[in-house]
Nucleic acid binder design. Structure first.
Lengths: 257, 257
DNA sequence: GTTCTGGGGG
DNA sequence: CCCCCAGAAC
């Protein structure tokens, strides 16, 4: 089973990138974040003709998540909680081929002294509760998406310069790790303990890609029974290098199931 | 000498269309209207590498005219008058290969009961004065551009439905013809007195192009000595049919000089 | 429909 | 830098 995650920064703007990637890589599952589109405008048809079923939950202008699968999921749920405060456009939980997949777009947090940052930190604890409430770490579960956290110094260029950045600040890393420690493993780091490899390069940073000034903030995490079956993980930089790129690129992992 | 006119509706958005057209048709002169770009942002380099010198006068967001020539013009002037009321971004007057070329983007006029319509009508009389002040009808002069006037019933689909439209209203046609009668001939009508042929199809009209519901409002006019040497005129519908089209298309004419 | 503007967001 | 939105223009 091949599963991928990609913060598209508008699924409508990135439709050619997405369909080409699906064609080339034929993943079983592609999780998207920042689709930035209302459900009524989600490009279902284009993805259908690429051979994928789209499960999506979006809103006007911001956020939005989607899961593309080769066949319809056996189960679908959205948001951390029921109701309007559940942040539907940030979490999709599906079951495909017996595997639970939780696709999240974690709040970025703006600045460490802003209420949005507290919201981000709380999001991780709410998510940990979500996992506890619904699953057991012995189940095969994948948690993936844009976590807006670079877990280790090697996961950001010039870490010492970013100590107060919402994606590297100690509290954010702690909150992320606490949720991860519910029962997940970072499959990229499992296979490549020492390889610096980014998944995001800021549009605003000039020559960010050329100079490789990026961040590893997109992750695929798996519970131990699944992580043990992970045979390959790769960051595909191609989409970021191509034309009309998202600021993120695709991360994928293969599992022997 | 081959000269063309094209309302691009943003020269930046239409750069691929323009460069492809230059490559395919190799005109001596291409006049552009609605470039919608400040002079500091005009895409000089891209047009230079197509082998053309760009003379341009634009503003932020609206209007803007340009003349592309194979070599630098011998003379350049902008606007109907000196100063801020001269409407520089609506008129460029250049001299190339001994031929005067006046490229205009005539005000559209909004609605016939609006002050903008009076401004449009006045524009034609100011332009006639411009011709009188600067030229003689015996000189070889070309006046071309987006005139925002369909001169004859055959120049608009359903003329009877557009009697109060600012581009077909009698006063607008009269104003246009009065300026034309200073000493110009419509070279398209000279060669094709009875052929309905549009140059503009409204984006908003569904299937406008397919159903050919358009307007002939872009024109190439020449003083008699030059008009007599006109050997070919054509509306090239290709750019309007292609992807990312302007709402106008290219009109070109060839002169045996 | 398509492109601008300006403002918000990352 | 690139995306969204709403509003204006044609």
């Amino acid at each position: 089973m091949k599963i991928a995650t990609f913060n598209v920064n508008s699924v409508r703007k990135r439709l050619p990138t997405v369909t080409r990637w699906l064609k080339t890589h034929a993943p079983d599952v592609l999780c998207l974040q920042e689709t930035k589109v209302q459900d009524s405008e989600f490009p279902v048809a284009a993805l259908e003709s690429s051979g994928y079923v789209a499960t999506f939950r979006g809103m006007k202008g911001y956020n939005g998540v989607a899961v593309l699968t080769k066949s319809a999921p056996d189960f679908v749920s959205e948001g951390l909680d029921k109701g309007p405060n559940g942040d539907g456009p940030r979490l999709l939980h599906v079951v495909v081929q017996g595997v639970v997949i939780v696709n999240t777009y974690i709040p970025q947090g703006f600045k460490i002294d802003h209420p949005k940052y507290q919201y981000k930190l709380q999001w991780f604890s709410r998510l940990r509760r979500y996992f506890s409430r619904h699953f057991d770490p012995h189940q095969p579960i994948i948690w993936c998406g844009d976590m807006n956290v670079a877990p280790l110094p090697m996961d950001v260029h010039h870490p010492e310069k970013h100590l107060t950045h919402v994606c590297y600040h100690q509290e954010a890393r702690d909150a992320y790790h606490k949720t991860l420690n519910w029962g997940f493993e970072d499959v990229f780091r499992r296979l490549y303990p020492d390889t610096p490899q980014y998944t995001f390069w800021d549009y605003r940073q000039p020559d960010a890609l050329k100079a490789n000034r990026g961040w590893r903030i997109d992750h695929i995490l798996a519970t131990t029974p699944l992580a043990q079956k992970c045979t390959a993980v790769e960051v595909d930089v191609q989409p970021r290098k191509g034309k009309m790129p998202s600021d993120h690129t695709v991360l994928w992992a293969k599992f022997a199931i």
